[in-house]
Design a protein around this nucleic acid. Structure first.
Lengths: 252, 252
DNA sequence: ATCATAGTCGTCTGCCTGACGATAAACACT
DNA sequence: AGTGTTTATCGTCAGGCAGACGACTATGAT
Protein backbone atom coordinates (compact mmCIF):
# COMPACT_ATOMS: atom_id res chain seq x y z
CA UNK A 1 0.00 0.00 0.00
CA UNK A 2 1.65 3.30 -1.06
CA UNK A 3 1.87 6.06 1.51
CA UNK A 4 -0.08 8.65 -0.38
CA UNK A 5 -0.90 11.36 2.17
CA UNK A 6 -4.41 11.49 0.79
CA UNK A 7 -4.79 7.75 1.29
CA UNK A 8 -5.24 7.83 5.03
CA UNK A 9 -7.78 9.66 7.13
CA UNK A 10 -6.47 12.24 9.61
CA UNK A 11 -6.91 11.52 13.29
CA UNK A 12 -6.69 13.61 16.39
CA UNK A 13 -4.56 11.90 19.03
CA UNK A 14 -5.01 12.63 22.72
CA UNK A 15 -3.72 11.27 25.98
CA UNK A 16 -6.13 10.60 28.83
CA UNK A 17 -4.95 9.99 32.35
CA UNK A 18 -6.14 7.57 35.00
CA UNK A 19 -4.50 9.09 38.05
CA UNK A 20 -4.98 6.91 41.11
CA UNK A 21 -4.22 7.54 44.74
CA UNK A 22 -5.30 6.18 48.10
CA UNK A 23 -7.18 8.53 50.38
CA UNK A 24 -9.06 7.64 53.52
CA UNK A 25 -8.73 3.91 52.88
CA UNK A 26 -10.27 4.19 49.43
CA UNK A 27 -8.86 4.01 45.93
CA UNK A 28 -9.53 7.38 44.33
CA UNK A 29 -9.13 8.74 40.83
CA UNK A 30 -8.64 12.27 39.62
CA UNK A 31 -11.65 13.67 37.76
CA UNK A 32 -12.09 17.03 36.10
CA UNK A 33 -15.31 18.77 35.20
CA UNK A 34 -15.78 19.51 31.54
CA UNK A 35 -16.20 23.17 30.67
CA UNK A 36 -17.45 22.79 27.10
CA UNK A 37 -19.65 20.50 25.09
CA UNK A 38 -19.91 17.70 24.54
CA UNK A 39 -20.63 16.36 28.01
CA UNK A 40 -20.43 19.90 29.41
CA UNK A 41 -20.53 19.89 33.20
CA UNK A 42 -19.88 16.17 33.39
CA UNK A 43 -16.87 14.63 35.06
CA UNK A 44 -14.13 13.25 32.87
CA UNK A 45 -10.58 12.02 33.05
CA UNK A 46 -7.90 14.66 32.57
CA UNK A 47 -6.25 14.68 29.19
CA UNK A 48 -5.43 16.65 26.11
CA UNK A 49 -4.03 16.66 22.62
CA UNK A 50 -0.64 15.27 21.81
CA UNK A 51 1.50 18.02 20.33
CA UNK A 52 3.22 17.73 17.00
CA UNK A 53 6.73 17.25 18.34
CA UNK A 54 5.87 15.24 21.43
CA UNK A 55 6.17 11.57 22.25
CA UNK A 56 3.13 9.91 23.82
CA UNK A 57 4.82 9.49 27.20
CA UNK A 58 5.97 13.10 27.11
CA UNK A 59 2.43 14.25 26.44
CA UNK A 60 1.16 12.15 29.33
CA UNK A 61 3.82 13.52 31.67
CA UNK A 62 3.02 17.06 30.60
CA UNK A 63 -0.69 16.60 31.20
CA UNK A 64 0.01 15.01 34.56
CA UNK A 65 2.14 17.97 35.58
CA UNK A 66 -0.46 20.44 34.36
CA UNK A 67 -3.28 18.78 36.27
CA UNK A 68 -1.57 17.78 39.48
CA UNK A 69 1.87 19.34 39.64
CA UNK A 70 3.33 15.85 39.87
CA UNK A 71 6.50 15.09 38.02
CA UNK A 72 6.47 11.74 36.30
CA UNK A 73 9.05 9.33 37.52
CA UNK A 74 11.78 9.03 34.93
CA UNK A 75 12.97 5.41 34.99
CA UNK A 76 16.48 6.53 34.02
CA UNK A 77 16.81 8.48 37.27
CA UNK A 78 17.20 6.09 40.20
CA UNK A 79 16.09 8.60 42.83
CA UNK A 80 12.37 8.48 42.26
CA UNK A 81 11.77 11.19 44.81
CA UNK A 82 8.32 12.74 44.52
CA UNK A 83 7.79 11.40 41.02
CA UNK A 84 4.63 9.51 40.25
CA UNK A 85 4.61 6.20 38.44
CA UNK A 86 3.41 6.65 34.89
CA UNK A 87 2.82 3.95 32.30
CA UNK A 88 0.85 3.50 29.14
CA UNK A 89 -2.46 1.77 29.70
CA UNK A 90 -4.30 1.17 26.43
CA UNK A 91 -5.57 2.98 23.37
CA UNK A 92 -9.21 3.70 22.60
CA UNK A 93 -10.27 4.45 19.07
CA UNK A 94 -13.91 3.70 18.50
CA UNK A 95 -15.02 5.88 15.56
CA UNK A 96 -17.93 7.20 17.60
CA UNK A 97 -16.20 7.72 20.93
CA UNK A 98 -16.09 11.47 20.31
CA UNK A 99 -19.14 12.85 18.51
CA UNK A 100 -17.21 15.71 16.90
CA UNK A 101 -14.41 13.94 15.11
CA UNK A 102 -12.21 10.91 14.94
CA UNK A 103 -10.14 10.91 18.12
CA UNK A 104 -7.78 8.18 19.20
CA UNK A 105 -6.90 8.40 22.86
CA UNK A 106 -3.81 6.80 24.34
CA UNK A 107 -4.72 6.30 27.97
CA UNK A 108 -2.01 6.34 30.62
CA UNK A 109 -2.05 5.15 34.20
CA UNK A 110 -0.46 7.23 36.96
CA UNK A 111 -0.07 6.21 40.59
CA UNK A 112 0.62 8.85 43.18
CA UNK A 113 0.85 9.24 46.95
CA UNK A 114 -1.93 11.10 48.70
CA UNK A 115 -0.13 14.42 48.97
CA UNK A 116 -1.26 16.50 46.01
CA UNK A 117 -4.32 18.67 45.93
CA UNK A 118 -6.03 18.67 42.57
CA UNK A 119 -6.03 21.74 40.42
CA UNK A 120 -7.54 22.02 36.99
CA UNK A 121 -6.38 25.21 35.39
CA UNK A 122 -6.05 26.63 38.89
CA UNK A 123 -9.73 26.04 39.61
CA UNK A 124 -10.07 23.50 42.39
CA UNK A 125 -13.87 23.27 42.06
CA UNK A 126 -13.40 21.70 38.65
CA UNK A 127 -11.12 18.91 39.82
CA UNK A 128 -11.50 16.34 42.57
CA UNK A 129 -10.38 13.02 43.90
CA UNK A 130 -13.31 10.65 43.85
CA UNK A 131 -13.52 7.02 44.97
CA UNK A 132 -13.43 4.87 41.89
CA UNK A 133 -16.63 3.03 42.82
CA UNK A 134 -18.39 6.38 42.93
CA UNK A 135 -17.11 7.30 39.48
CA UNK A 136 -17.95 3.91 38.03
CA UNK A 137 -21.41 3.42 39.44
CA UNK A 138 -24.19 4.55 37.17
CA UNK A 139 -26.99 6.73 38.39
CA UNK A 140 -26.26 6.61 42.12
CA UNK A 141 -25.64 9.56 44.37
CA UNK A 142 -22.16 10.54 45.43
CA UNK A 143 -21.03 11.56 48.90
CA UNK A 144 -22.01 15.17 48.23
CA UNK A 145 -25.52 14.21 47.25
CA UNK A 146 -24.85 15.04 43.66
CA UNK A 147 -26.31 12.70 41.10
CA UNK A 148 -23.51 10.51 39.90
CA UNK A 149 -23.66 10.96 36.16
CA UNK A 150 -21.49 8.56 34.20
CA UNK A 151 -18.13 9.84 33.12
CA UNK A 152 -17.89 11.60 29.76
CA UNK A 153 -16.99 9.76 26.56
CA UNK A 154 -15.77 6.23 27.18
CA UNK A 155 -13.91 7.33 30.27
CA UNK A 156 -15.75 4.90 32.53
CA UNK A 157 -14.30 2.06 30.49
CA UNK A 158 -10.84 3.62 30.56
CA UNK A 159 -11.03 4.13 34.31
CA UNK A 160 -12.20 0.56 34.84
CA UNK A 161 -9.32 -0.73 32.75
CA UNK A 162 -6.86 1.41 34.69
CA UNK A 163 -8.18 0.24 38.04
CA UNK A 164 -7.98 -3.35 36.92
CA UNK A 165 -4.42 -2.82 35.74
CA UNK A 166 -3.43 -1.33 39.09
CA UNK A 167 -5.17 -4.11 41.01
CA UNK A 168 -3.41 -6.85 39.14
CA UNK A 169 -0.05 -5.13 38.91
CA UNK A 170 0.46 -4.72 42.64
CA UNK A 171 0.17 -8.49 42.87
CA UNK A 172 3.39 -9.25 41.11
CA UNK A 173 5.32 -5.97 41.30
CA UNK A 174 6.42 -3.53 43.95
CA UNK A 175 4.19 -0.89 42.43
CA UNK A 176 2.11 -0.46 45.57
CA UNK A 177 4.96 1.64 46.96
CA UNK A 178 4.11 4.25 44.32
CA UNK A 179 1.02 5.05 46.43
CA UNK A 180 3.20 5.67 49.49
CA UNK A 181 5.31 8.64 50.52
CA UNK A 182 9.09 8.18 50.20
CA UNK A 183 9.22 6.66 53.67
CA UNK A 184 6.44 4.46 54.93
CA UNK A 185 5.66 1.67 57.33
CA UNK A 186 4.60 -1.88 56.66
CA UNK A 187 1.15 -1.01 57.97
CA UNK A 188 0.81 1.89 55.58
CA UNK A 189 1.79 -0.34 52.69
CA UNK A 190 -0.72 -2.91 53.84
CA UNK A 191 -3.47 -0.31 53.91
CA UNK A 192 -2.61 0.50 50.30
CA UNK A 193 -3.19 -3.10 49.31
CA UNK A 194 -6.38 -3.21 51.33
CA UNK A 195 -7.70 -0.05 49.69
CA UNK A 196 -6.79 -1.03 46.15
CA UNK A 197 -8.14 -4.54 46.49
CA UNK A 198 -10.95 -3.60 48.87
CA UNK A 199 -10.12 -6.51 51.14
CA UNK A 200 -8.75 -7.04 54.63
CA UNK A 201 -5.32 -8.62 54.93
CA UNK A 202 -3.81 -10.34 57.94
CA UNK A 203 -1.22 -7.89 59.35
CA UNK A 204 1.08 -10.66 60.54
CA UNK A 205 1.17 -12.62 57.31
CA UNK A 206 1.52 -9.41 55.31
CA UNK A 207 4.44 -8.31 57.47
CA UNK A 208 6.14 -11.66 57.00
CA UNK A 209 5.63 -11.53 53.27
CA UNK A 210 6.89 -8.04 52.51
CA UNK A 211 9.82 -8.09 54.92
CA UNK A 212 10.81 -11.52 53.68
CA UNK A 213 10.87 -10.59 50.00
CA UNK A 214 14.44 -9.54 49.15
CA UNK A 215 14.76 -6.09 47.63
CA UNK A 216 11.18 -5.05 48.24
CA UNK A 217 11.72 -2.88 51.32
CA UNK A 218 14.84 -1.20 52.67
CA UNK A 219 14.76 -0.10 56.31
CA UNK A 220 15.74 3.50 56.84
CA UNK A 221 16.49 3.05 60.52
CA UNK A 222 13.84 5.50 61.62
CA UNK A 223 10.52 4.80 63.25
CA UNK A 224 7.22 6.60 63.43
CA UNK A 225 4.04 6.54 65.44
CA UNK A 226 1.97 8.62 63.02
CA UNK A 227 -0.50 5.77 62.74
CA UNK A 228 -0.80 5.44 66.53
CA UNK A 229 0.09 2.38 68.52
CA UNK A 230 3.51 0.92 68.83
CA UNK A 231 6.24 2.68 66.82
CA UNK A 232 6.74 1.15 63.41
CA UNK A 233 9.89 0.84 61.37
CA UNK A 234 10.20 3.14 58.38
CA UNK A 235 11.11 1.70 54.99
CA UNK A 236 11.96 2.94 51.55
CA UNK A 237 11.10 1.11 48.34
CA UNK A 238 13.89 -1.29 47.44
CA UNK A 239 15.31 -1.87 44.01
CA UNK A 240 13.23 -4.94 43.24
CA UNK A 241 10.40 -4.30 40.80
CA UNK A 242 9.10 -7.85 40.40
CA UNK A 243 7.63 -9.82 43.28
CA UNK A 244 8.33 -13.50 43.03
CA UNK A 245 6.39 -15.24 44.38
CA UNK A 246 3.64 -12.65 44.01
CA UNK A 247 1.42 -11.18 46.68
CA UNK A 248 -1.74 -13.27 46.63
CA UNK A 249 -5.03 -11.50 46.33
CA UNK A 250 -7.71 -13.13 48.51
CA UNK A 251 -10.48 -14.83 46.56
CA UNK A 252 -13.43 -12.88 47.91
CA UNK B 1 -9.13 23.67 25.82
CA UNK B 2 -11.58 24.30 22.95
CA UNK B 3 -11.73 21.72 20.22
CA UNK B 4 -10.79 23.98 17.37
CA UNK B 5 -9.99 21.64 14.47
CA UNK B 6 -6.95 23.75 13.69
CA UNK B 7 -5.75 23.47 17.27
CA UNK B 8 -4.47 19.93 17.00
CA UNK B 9 -1.98 18.40 14.61
CA UNK B 10 -3.24 15.64 12.31
CA UNK B 11 -1.85 12.13 12.81
CA UNK B 12 -1.85 9.03 10.71
CA UNK B 13 -2.95 6.01 12.76
CA UNK B 14 -1.89 2.51 11.83
CA UNK B 15 -2.12 -0.95 13.33
CA UNK B 16 0.93 -3.19 13.38
CA UNK B 17 0.69 -6.88 14.12
CA UNK B 18 2.90 -9.17 16.14
CA UNK B 19 1.66 -12.55 14.92
CA UNK B 20 3.24 -15.39 16.86
CA UNK B 21 3.13 -19.10 16.29
CA UNK B 22 5.16 -22.14 17.28
CA UNK B 23 6.93 -24.01 14.51
CA UNK B 24 9.56 -26.69 14.88
CA UNK B 25 9.91 -26.07 18.61
CA UNK B 26 10.60 -22.37 18.12
CA UNK B 27 8.56 -19.25 18.70
CA UNK B 28 8.15 -17.58 15.32
CA UNK B 29 6.75 -14.26 14.19
CA UNK B 30 5.26 -13.23 10.89
CA UNK B 31 7.43 -10.79 8.93
CA UNK B 32 6.76 -9.14 5.59
CA UNK B 33 9.28 -7.60 3.24
CA UNK B 34 8.79 -3.93 2.53
CA UNK B 35 8.23 -3.05 -1.10
CA UNK B 36 8.72 0.69 -0.90
CA UNK B 37 10.89 3.19 0.93
CA UNK B 38 11.59 3.85 3.64
CA UNK B 39 13.33 0.63 4.67
CA UNK B 40 12.67 -0.83 1.22
CA UNK B 41 13.58 -4.51 1.09
CA UNK B 42 13.80 -4.79 4.87
CA UNK B 43 11.62 -7.05 6.95
CA UNK B 44 8.84 -5.47 8.97
CA UNK B 45 5.76 -6.39 10.91
CA UNK B 46 2.54 -6.55 8.92
CA UNK B 47 0.23 -3.60 9.36
CA UNK B 48 -1.62 -0.78 7.70
CA UNK B 49 -3.71 2.30 8.11
CA UNK B 50 -6.81 2.39 10.22
CA UNK B 51 -9.74 3.33 8.06
CA UNK B 52 -12.06 6.21 8.77
CA UNK B 53 -15.00 4.13 9.97
CA UNK B 54 -13.09 1.34 11.66
CA UNK B 55 -12.41 0.56 15.27
CA UNK B 56 -8.82 -0.29 16.21
CA UNK B 57 -9.62 -3.93 16.88
CA UNK B 58 -11.50 -4.16 13.60
CA UNK B 59 -8.53 -2.76 11.75
CA UNK B 60 -6.24 -5.27 13.42
CA UNK B 61 -8.58 -8.14 12.59
CA UNK B 62 -8.81 -7.00 8.98
CA UNK B 63 -5.04 -6.76 8.61
CA UNK B 64 -4.66 -10.18 10.21
CA UNK B 65 -7.10 -11.68 7.75
CA UNK B 66 -5.42 -9.97 4.82
CA UNK B 67 -1.96 -11.19 5.78
CA UNK B 68 -2.68 -14.68 7.04
CA UNK B 69 -6.24 -15.61 6.22
CA UNK B 70 -6.86 -16.09 9.92
CA UNK B 71 -10.10 -14.97 11.39
CA UNK B 72 -9.72 -13.22 14.69
CA UNK B 73 -11.41 -14.95 17.57
CA UNK B 74 -14.51 -13.03 18.49
CA UNK B 75 -14.87 -13.25 22.28
CA UNK B 76 -18.64 -13.14 21.95
CA UNK B 77 -18.65 -16.40 20.02
CA UNK B 78 -17.89 -19.31 22.32
CA UNK B 79 -16.79 -21.67 19.55
CA UNK B 80 -13.34 -20.33 18.91
CA UNK B 81 -12.76 -22.72 16.09
CA UNK B 82 -9.95 -21.65 13.79
CA UNK B 83 -9.91 -18.11 15.16
CA UNK B 84 -6.65 -16.66 16.39
CA UNK B 85 -6.32 -14.83 19.66
CA UNK B 86 -6.02 -11.09 19.11
CA UNK B 87 -5.42 -8.39 21.69
CA UNK B 88 -4.12 -4.88 21.80
CA UNK B 89 -0.46 -4.70 22.76
CA UNK B 90 0.71 -1.09 23.06
CA UNK B 91 0.88 2.14 21.10
CA UNK B 92 4.01 3.66 19.65
CA UNK B 93 4.10 7.33 18.78
CA UNK B 94 7.62 8.70 18.77
CA UNK B 95 7.57 11.76 16.48
CA UNK B 96 10.50 10.36 14.49
CA UNK B 97 9.46 6.73 14.26
CA UNK B 98 8.41 7.23 10.65
CA UNK B 99 10.62 9.65 8.72
CA UNK B 100 7.82 10.75 6.42
CA UNK B 101 5.13 11.95 8.75
CA UNK B 102 3.67 11.67 12.19
CA UNK B 103 2.39 8.13 12.55
CA UNK B 104 0.96 6.61 15.70
CA UNK B 105 0.86 2.83 15.56
CA UNK B 106 -1.42 0.75 17.73
CA UNK B 107 0.33 -2.60 17.91
CA UNK B 108 -1.69 -5.77 18.38
CA UNK B 109 -0.63 -9.23 19.41
CA UNK B 110 -2.02 -12.30 17.64
CA UNK B 111 -1.39 -15.90 18.61
CA UNK B 112 -2.08 -18.62 16.08
CA UNK B 113 -1.59 -22.35 15.65
CA UNK B 114 1.02 -23.53 13.19
CA UNK B 115 -1.39 -24.22 10.33
CA UNK B 116 -1.34 -21.13 8.14
CA UNK B 117 1.12 -20.45 5.34
CA UNK B 118 2.03 -16.80 5.10
CA UNK B 119 0.89 -14.73 2.18
CA UNK B 120 1.56 -11.06 1.67
CA UNK B 121 -0.55 -9.82 -1.14
CA UNK B 122 -0.42 -13.33 -2.56
CA UNK B 123 3.35 -13.23 -2.77
CA UNK B 124 4.83 -15.82 -0.43
CA UNK B 125 8.40 -14.67 -1.01
CA UNK B 126 7.55 -11.41 0.72
CA UNK B 127 6.23 -12.99 3.88
CA UNK B 128 7.72 -15.58 6.20
CA UNK B 129 7.64 -17.07 9.65
CA UNK B 130 10.95 -16.36 11.34
CA UNK B 131 12.15 -17.35 14.80
CA UNK B 132 11.88 -14.32 17.02
CA UNK B 133 15.52 -14.53 18.09
CA UNK B 134 16.50 -14.31 14.44
CA UNK B 135 14.36 -11.23 13.92
CA UNK B 136 15.60 -9.58 17.09
CA UNK B 137 19.31 -10.25 16.79
CA UNK B 138 21.24 -7.45 15.18
CA UNK B 139 23.72 -8.11 12.40
CA UNK B 140 23.80 -11.90 12.56
CA UNK B 141 23.05 -14.28 9.74
CA UNK B 142 19.72 -16.04 9.48
CA UNK B 143 19.14 -19.69 8.64
CA UNK B 144 19.17 -18.91 4.93
CA UNK B 145 22.55 -17.19 5.14
CA UNK B 146 20.94 -13.83 4.59
CA UNK B 147 22.32 -10.96 6.63
CA UNK B 148 19.84 -10.32 9.42
CA UNK B 149 19.11 -6.63 9.06
CA UNK B 150 17.15 -5.13 11.90
CA UNK B 151 13.44 -4.81 11.41
CA UNK B 152 12.12 -1.61 9.87
CA UNK B 153 10.96 1.37 11.93
CA UNK B 154 10.72 0.56 15.64
CA UNK B 155 9.36 -2.88 14.87
CA UNK B 156 12.12 -4.66 16.77
CA UNK B 157 10.92 -2.94 19.92
CA UNK B 158 7.30 -3.77 19.13
CA UNK B 159 8.17 -7.41 18.49
CA UNK B 160 10.18 -7.61 21.70
CA UNK B 161 7.26 -6.18 23.64
CA UNK B 162 4.87 -8.64 22.02
CA UNK B 163 7.08 -11.60 22.78
CA UNK B 164 7.45 -10.50 26.36
CA UNK B 165 3.68 -10.12 26.65
CA UNK B 166 3.14 -13.63 25.30
CA UNK B 167 5.79 -15.10 27.56
CA UNK B 168 4.33 -13.59 30.68
CA UNK B 169 0.71 -14.11 29.74
CA UNK B 170 0.89 -17.86 29.33
CA UNK B 171 2.04 -17.97 32.94
CA UNK B 172 -1.25 -16.92 34.42
CA UNK B 173 -3.75 -17.54 31.63
CA UNK B 174 -4.78 -20.41 29.40
CA UNK B 175 -3.55 -18.49 26.37
CA UNK B 176 -1.01 -21.14 25.41
CA UNK B 177 -3.90 -23.11 23.94
CA UNK B 178 -4.17 -20.39 21.28
CA UNK B 179 -0.97 -21.82 19.80
CA UNK B 180 -2.54 -25.26 19.56
CA UNK B 181 -4.98 -26.75 17.06
CA UNK B 182 -8.55 -27.22 18.32
CA UNK B 183 -7.65 -30.63 19.72
CA UNK B 184 -4.27 -31.24 21.24
CA UNK B 185 -2.43 -33.40 23.72
CA UNK B 186 -0.80 -32.46 26.99
CA UNK B 187 2.57 -33.03 25.38
CA UNK B 188 1.79 -30.68 22.53
CA UNK B 189 0.74 -28.02 25.00
CA UNK B 190 3.94 -28.60 26.95
CA UNK B 191 6.00 -28.12 23.83
CA UNK B 192 4.27 -24.79 23.32
CA UNK B 193 5.39 -23.64 26.75
CA UNK B 194 8.87 -24.96 26.11
CA UNK B 195 9.12 -23.13 22.80
CA UNK B 196 7.73 -19.83 24.06
CA UNK B 197 9.86 -19.83 27.20
CA UNK B 198 12.84 -21.61 25.59
CA UNK B 199 13.12 -23.96 28.55
CA UNK B 200 12.63 -27.64 29.23
CA UNK B 201 9.76 -28.64 31.50
CA UNK B 202 9.29 -31.88 33.41
CA UNK B 203 6.59 -33.81 31.53
CA UNK B 204 5.22 -35.43 34.68
CA UNK B 205 4.87 -32.26 36.71
CA UNK B 206 3.47 -30.42 33.72
CA UNK B 207 0.90 -33.14 33.18
CA UNK B 208 -0.11 -33.00 36.83
CA UNK B 209 -0.40 -29.23 36.73
CA UNK B 210 -2.52 -28.82 33.61
CA UNK B 211 -4.81 -31.77 34.21
CA UNK B 212 -5.26 -30.71 37.82
CA UNK B 213 -6.30 -27.14 37.03
CA UNK B 214 -10.11 -27.08 36.78
CA UNK B 215 -11.46 -25.71 33.53
CA UNK B 216 -8.14 -25.56 31.75
CA UNK B 217 -8.48 -28.71 29.66
CA UNK B 218 -11.54 -30.69 28.61
CA UNK B 219 -10.95 -34.25 27.42
CA UNK B 220 -12.56 -35.02 24.11
CA UNK B 221 -12.39 -38.77 24.59
CA UNK B 222 -10.18 -39.34 21.58
CA UNK B 223 -6.53 -40.23 21.50
CA UNK B 224 -3.74 -39.72 19.03
CA UNK B 225 -0.28 -41.05 18.36
CA UNK B 226 0.77 -38.28 15.98
CA UNK B 227 3.68 -37.47 18.26
CA UNK B 228 4.81 -41.10 18.39
CA UNK B 229 5.01 -43.20 21.51
CA UNK B 230 2.09 -44.18 23.66
CA UNK B 231 -1.29 -42.81 22.56
CA UNK B 232 -2.12 -39.56 24.28
CA UNK B 233 -5.48 -38.21 25.30
CA UNK B 234 -6.88 -35.37 23.22
CA UNK B 235 -8.13 -32.22 24.92
CA UNK B 236 -9.91 -29.06 24.00
CA UNK B 237 -9.35 -25.72 25.70
CA UNK B 238 -11.69 -25.39 28.67
CA UNK B 239 -13.64 -22.34 29.66
CA UNK B 240 -11.14 -21.10 32.23
CA UNK B 241 -9.08 -18.14 31.08
CA UNK B 242 -7.16 -17.44 34.27
CA UNK B 243 -4.73 -19.93 35.77
CA UNK B 244 -4.69 -19.80 39.53
CA UNK B 245 -2.16 -20.66 40.77
CA UNK B 246 -0.15 -19.75 37.69
CA UNK B 247 2.20 -21.93 35.70
CA UNK B 248 5.65 -21.20 37.07
CA UNK B 249 8.35 -20.24 34.61
CA UNK B 250 11.69 -21.79 35.58
CA UNK B 251 14.29 -19.31 36.83
CA UNK B 252 16.96 -19.91 34.18
C1' DA C 1 -3.38 1.94 85.99
C1' DT C 2 -6.07 0.40 82.38
C1' DC C 3 -7.46 0.20 77.75
C1' DA C 4 -7.15 0.64 72.85
C1' DT C 5 -4.26 0.56 68.95
C1' DA C 6 -0.77 -0.98 66.00
C1' DG C 7 3.45 -3.57 65.22
C1' DT C 8 6.33 -7.77 65.39
C1' DC C 9 7.64 -12.59 66.20
C1' DG C 10 6.22 -17.58 66.23
C1' DT C 11 3.76 -21.91 65.40
C1' DC C 12 1.10 -25.15 62.94
C1' DT C 13 -1.20 -27.15 59.03
C1' DG C 14 -2.28 -27.81 54.32
C1' DC C 15 -1.27 -27.12 49.51
C1' DC C 16 1.69 -26.82 45.70
C1' DT C 17 5.98 -27.60 43.34
C1' DG C 18 10.31 -29.73 41.95
C1' DA C 19 12.82 -33.98 41.63
C1' DC C 20 12.44 -38.34 40.17
C1' DG C 21 11.04 -43.59 40.18
C1' DA C 22 7.93 -46.67 37.82
C1' DT C 23 4.65 -48.36 34.58
C1' DA C 24 2.04 -48.30 30.07
C1' DA C 25 1.29 -48.35 25.20
C1' DA C 26 2.57 -47.45 20.85
C1' DC C 27 6.32 -47.99 16.82
C1' DA C 28 10.83 -49.46 14.65
C1' DC C 29 13.98 -52.54 14.46
C1' DT C 30 16.21 -57.26 14.23
C1' DA D 1 8.43 -62.58 18.74
C1' DG D 2 11.64 -59.95 21.26
C1' DT D 3 14.13 -55.67 22.17
C1' DG D 4 14.85 -50.87 22.29
C1' DT D 5 12.98 -46.19 21.79
C1' DT D 6 9.65 -42.86 22.41
C1' DT D 7 5.99 -40.65 24.66
C1' DA D 8 2.30 -40.69 28.14
C1' DT D 9 0.72 -41.25 32.74
C1' DC D 10 0.63 -42.36 37.76
C1' DG D 11 2.92 -42.12 42.33
C1' DT D 12 6.03 -40.75 46.09
C1' DC D 13 8.61 -37.67 48.85
C1' DA D 14 10.69 -33.43 50.72
C1' DG D 15 10.79 -28.40 50.89
C1' DG D 16 8.64 -23.90 50.57
C1' DC D 17 5.05 -20.84 51.13
C1' DA D 18 0.49 -19.10 52.60
C1' DG D 19 -3.54 -18.93 55.73
C1' DA D 20 -5.07 -19.09 60.47
C1' DC D 21 -4.08 -17.51 64.67
C1' DG D 22 -1.60 -17.10 69.50
C1' DA D 23 1.51 -14.20 72.03
C1' DC D 24 4.07 -10.31 73.19
C1' DT D 25 5.61 -5.28 72.69
C1' DA D 26 5.40 -0.35 72.69
C1' DT D 27 3.09 3.70 72.24
C1' DG D 28 -1.01 7.20 73.28
C1' DA D 29 -5.67 8.05 75.42
C1' DT D 30 -8.82 7.95 79.46
Amino acid sequence: MPYDPSAFPPFAVTVDLVVLTVRRHALCALAVRRGEPPFQGRWALPGGFVRADEDLSQAAARELAEETGLRAHDPSVPAQDNGAHLEQLATYGDPKRDPRMRVVSVAHLALAPDLPAPRAGGDASNARWAPVEELLEQGGYGRDGELAAPLAFDHAQILADGVERARSKIEYSSLATAFCPPEFTVGELRRVYEAVWAVALDPRNFHRKVTGTPGFLVPTGGTTTRQGGRPAQLFRAGGATLLNPPMLRPEV
